[in-house]
Design a protein around this nucleic acid. Structure first.
Ligand SMILES: [Mn+2]
Ligand SMILES: [Mn+2]
Ligand SMILES: [Zn+2]
Ligand SMILES: [Zn+2]
Lengths: 171, 171
DNA sequence: TGGATTACGAAAACTGTTTTCATTTTCGGC
DNA sequence: GCCGAAAATGAAAACAGTTTTCGTAATCCA
């Protein structure tokens, strides 16, 4: 398995690069730069993991309490459209978002006990998918692979469960 | 690629087998046999593909128009709990259900143009997932793999698009 | 067959998300 | 700097799919 690059600390250079890329996107689309959007993306890109709308809004409100749900939703849609962010759905009913500046394409293993999400990437798996698509005369745009199960390390798993992990926290 | 077994016609023996299995499940759980549930499962098991609640209800109502949403939802939950049926979500916002009496475990390729869903199964892919989980000290209970893209056979794809396929129809 | 238990169906409630709409902000041209 | 068209905001309403409630009806075992 190829380990997925992980950042425990926020890489400020990367964040600024992302912010600039989003500004570009906004410009290209003829949209306007706003204080709220800046706050939202600045906050989002400094969060790790798989962030729900509510989690993001809570953080955002600490900077500017007047920002509401609608603007967060709208900004996330723009981030997805700009390809700076990907939407995930792990089956708990909420959309989660992850900036993939710091993690290239990857898939997920989700522990149903403790909520931990492990990220992985394997080139053979990707290649195999391509060859299966080929056989079927099908062209893949994107894919989604999720392995649901449980940690085998029960101590670590229980510890996480105890402190109430959610599906949000990857590593 | 290992082709997934497909039934164009309903296999009445299989359906009756499923009905019996569900009756068993109901019994074991101490629940009651009802006319409505019988109608719903009899209808469901005779449908092919990836069925939404609304599609199922429409069919069911042709047999007994008094049956409502709630009972269909409740019965589908029981079917899933009994492992006779699996719930799918292909990202169009609705849950879809498929009885896997006639199709063993399989994954999906979804054409975003025409809505066609191709089913496939590949042992190497399954094995590879297992070995990746192993490496990660993770035990897989179930998984979900979806390839989103487009048919390369554009004539066939357009034909299907023209007659308004939905994500429901797999082959 | 009585009666505790389970199921039903219509409607209300819920959840996450999107839309509406009145108001405010942005920003290119003057 | 100011104008004004265009875009964005936020509160609230609307929405879609699903779940729950609650009064009534059906099931099924002793
Ligand atoms: Mn991830
Ligand atoms: Mn299928
Ligand atoms: Zn765990
Ligand atoms: Zn197609």
């Amino acid at each position: 398995m190829v380990p997925v690059k992980k950042y425990r600390e926020v890489d400020e250079n990367l964040v600024r690069q992302k912010e600039a890329a989003f500004a570009d996107f906004i410009q290209r689309k003829g949209l306007k730069t706003t204080r709220q959007r800046n706050t939202i993306i600045a906050t989002f890109f400094r969060l790790r993991g798989h962030i729900s709308v509510e989690e993001l809004l809570n953080q955002v409100k600490q900077v500017n309490p007047r920002i509401g749900y609608a603007t967060v939703y709208r900004t996330l849609h723009l981030l997805v459209e700009s390809s700076l962010v990907e939407e995930r759905r792990f089956g708990d009913g909420l959309a989660r978002y992850e900036g993939h500046s710091d993690v290239e394409h990857h898939d997920h293993m989700i522990c149903l006990e403790c909520g931990e999400i492990f990220e992985f990437f394997n080139p053979r798996l990707e290649a195999l998918q391509e060859s299966l698509a080929e056989e079927n005369n099908f062209q893949i745009f994107r894919h989604r692979l999720e392995l649901y199960g449980a940690c085998k390390d029960k101590e670590a798993c229980n510890r996480r469960k105890a402190r109430g992990n959610t599906a949000a926290g990857a590593e």
